[in-house]
Simulated scan of single mutants.
Amino acid sequence: MKKYVILISGRGSNMRSLLEAGLPGACVAVISNRPEAAGLDYARGRGLPTRVVDHRQYASREDFDAALAAEIERHQPDLVLLAGFMRVLTDGFVRRFEGRLLNIHPSLLPAFPGLTTHAKAIAAGVRLHGCTVHFVTPALDSGPIVIQAAVPVQDDDDEDTLGARVLAQEHLVYAQAARWFLEGRLAIRGNRVLLAGARPEEAALRAPLG
């Protein structure tokens, strides 16, 4: 059975969706850079090993990433899942786990990388917003895309209402992407991810409808 590790920084809502999805693999550790992260209590409640590598205890990003990588490697995972892990990782760390490091981002990449994505989407006037699961590369929020989900942007949306609608989709697509990886169905070809056995999708999304 393949093994995976989840990295969190806070409440871990995406971690919870992953753990509740019945993935075809074993979660061997939940690791946080913050000892107060609420998600750690949930993981402990499920009987999972938890670890803390506190970034505030290290003099540099490189030192922290080296310690984090060593802790991850101790569990020998096939897959590392960033689930609300609020740290920008160094190039060396990313290359160490290249091809087995997934992240979920709350926008339809390549649109709106970085933070405050829902505010950016509203300000830009886009009609569709969403989330993206992608392999992590040294360039921020720009790795090969596994799966995306889109939601309409309503005229009366604010960051909270739009963010809640996107988060509901995050919980679905991140578990799906992890499942595909653990089943051995994903292959990276350049900047594209190929899914073995994928069904062609011809339906179009339109917003608004009138």
Rank of each mutant, 00 (worst) to 15 (best):
M1G: 12
Y4N: 05
V5C: 11
V5N: 02
I6P: 00
I6T: 02
G10E: 00
N14L: 03
R16M: 08
S17N: 09
L18R: 13
L18F: 11
G22C: 08
L23G: 13
P24K: 04
G25N: 09
A26N: 03
V28S: 12
V28G: 08
A29H: 13
A29M: 14
V30K: 01
I31C: 04
S32Y: 01
N33M: 01
R34K: 10
R34D: 00
G39N: 01
R44K: 08
G45D: 06
G45K: 11
G45Y: 01
L48I: 00
P49N: 04
P49V: 05
P49L: 06
T50V: 10
R51S: 15
V52W: 09
H55I: 00
H55R: 02
R56T: 13
R56Q: 14
Y58S: 03
Y58W: 01
R61N: 10
E62A: 11
L68V: 03
A70S: 09
A70I: 06
I72H: 13
R74W: 13
H75T: 04
H75K: 07
H75A: 03
L79T: 15
L81R: 05
L81V: 05
L81Q: 11
L81K: 15
A83C: 11
G84Q: 02
M86C: 06
V88L: 10
V88E: 07
L89S: 06
L89Y: 08
T90K: 07
T90C: 14
D91Y: 15
D91C: 13
G92F: 14
G92W: 10
F93Q: 15
V94K: 07
E98G: 15
R100Y: 11
L101N: 12
P106W: 03
S107M: 00
P110S: 06
A111Y: 06
A111E: 10
A111F: 08
A111N: 05
G114E: 12
T116D: 15
T117R: 10
K120T: 10
A121S: 02
A121R: 06
I122M: 06
A123T: 12
A124F: 02
V126R: 04
H129F: 01
H129P: 07
G130V: 06
C131D: 04
V133A: 04
T137V: 14
P138A: 12
P138V: 12
A139G: 11
L140Y: 07
S142T: 06
G143F: 01
P144W: 04
I147F: 08
I147K: 15
Q148R: 13
A150C: 07
V151N: 08
P152K: 08
D155F: 13
D157M: 05
D157P: 11
D158G: 14
D158C: 11
D160W: 14
T161M: 05
T161I: 05
T161K: 08
A164P: 04
L167G: 10
L167R: 15
A168Y: 07
A168K: 05
E170V: 07
H171N: 01
L172T: 03
L172E: 14
A175L: 11
Q176P: 09
Q176V: 13
Q176D: 08
A177F: 01
A177E: 00
F181S: 03
G184N: 12
G184R: 00
R185P: 09
L186E: 02
A187R: 07
I188Y: 02
R189F: 07
L194M: 13
L194P: 12
G197W: 02
G197C: 09
E202A: 03
R206G: 09
P208N: 12
G210D: 10
